[in-house]
Amino acid sequence: MNIDWANEEWLWGLAFPALLFAWSIFHRSRTSARRKGSQAQWATAGFSGIKKSSSSRIHPPKAFLCSALALLVVSIAQPRWGTEKTITFERSREVIIAMDLSKSMLADDIKPNRLERAKLVVESMLETLQGESVGLIVFAGTAFLQSPMSPDYQILRGFLKDINPTYIPQGGTNYEAMLNTALDSFEQSDGMADRFLIVISDGESLESNWKAKARELKEENVRAICLGFGTQSGSFIPDGEGGYLKDPNGAVVLSKLEANTLKQLANMTDGVYKEASLWVDLAQLVEDTVKSGEAALKEREKENTLVERYHYFLAPGLILLLISLYLEFPTLPKARTIKRKVAA
């Protein structure tokens, strides 16, 4: 039978109960020799009837304590032997959500407005995920990672609730900065998962330098799921003071959905583009995209898992420890009667 140890270094601790046992035997033998000498002196002096101490009984000294310590050390070392069949589920998926925070996302052609509708769509996706690592990027004229990838969705929900266009005062829709931030975030993972970049935006990039970053996404096996929030008819952008944003000429700005960049990004990464003027089941969209990929939710059967056996040593070790404490607990000494021989 082959025994495997999870904490093999703890086996060095067996030296302590061994040394304690050896020291106890040595100490008991010396004490016994002194006691015999004392009894001989009392007998010479004419005393008799000295009751022998119970400590002179022949039994391994502190045997229970030393055995208990040895068993506990073995338990801590976690012995494992034998195998059992286990079935585990492996979900290998990483998702980064890139949320456009330009002021145009406040337009209300989608109720209550584009940004709030996007938050609701993302929230609904989080309700259905089971263990995926999810991160959040916010972007406008620049971009930064708001929430690193993590399976703890409560952290992401906290950020998602509070984000708004004031997070990024620099206006515009900088796809290059957003894609660069996404690439940096994916590089921190092990690269063995399905990777998705969910881009939520209403505008297109006026520059084409983002395409080089899109090709890098493709090389890193990241597929973009692009959601266009807005309508073709568009809407005005509230300025936060009861009016609407105006251009330098004083005309009110009408914001429409510009989906060209989103469509190109999806095509370049073998992803998918979806217009979100109506409700989008983002979780199902991810699932559908996964089916065309390589990795997904996998059932993996392991037949060679070693079985933990530490409890076989832990339970008797604790019992012997309690017994040793009971036997070693000090008691009040009993009175002894000493008789002196009367000379004839």
Rank of each mutant, 00 (worst) to 15 (best):
D4M: 13
M178L: 05
G49N: 04
F144D: 00
D239E: 01
S104H: 11
I3K: 05
P60W: 13
I110K: 11
L129W: 12
F47M: 09
K213V: 02
F47H: 10
S205T: 03
G49D: 00
D108A: 14
K85G: 04
Y310K: 05
F313S: 01
V290A: 14
M1C: 03
L183V: 06
L106N: 08
L262F: 13
K291I: 07
R80Q: 14
Q154K: 13
G234P: 06
R340K: 12
T83A: 09
R35S: 05
F47G: 05
V138P: 00
S277C: 01
A177F: 12
R340M: 04
L115Q: 09
E8R: 15
K85V: 11
K51V: 08
L72H: 12
E303A: 13
D190M: 01
R93D: 01
S104N: 04
Y167G: 02
A98M: 14
V222Y: 05
S67L: 15
G293T: 08
E303R: 13
E9G: 15
M99R: 06
K256F: 00
R57N: 04
F16H: 07
T331E: 08
K103M: 08
T269L: 05
D270T: 08
S150R: 12
I110G: 02
V286D: 03
A43G: 04
L297T: 07
R117Y: 12
A22V: 14
P151Y: 04
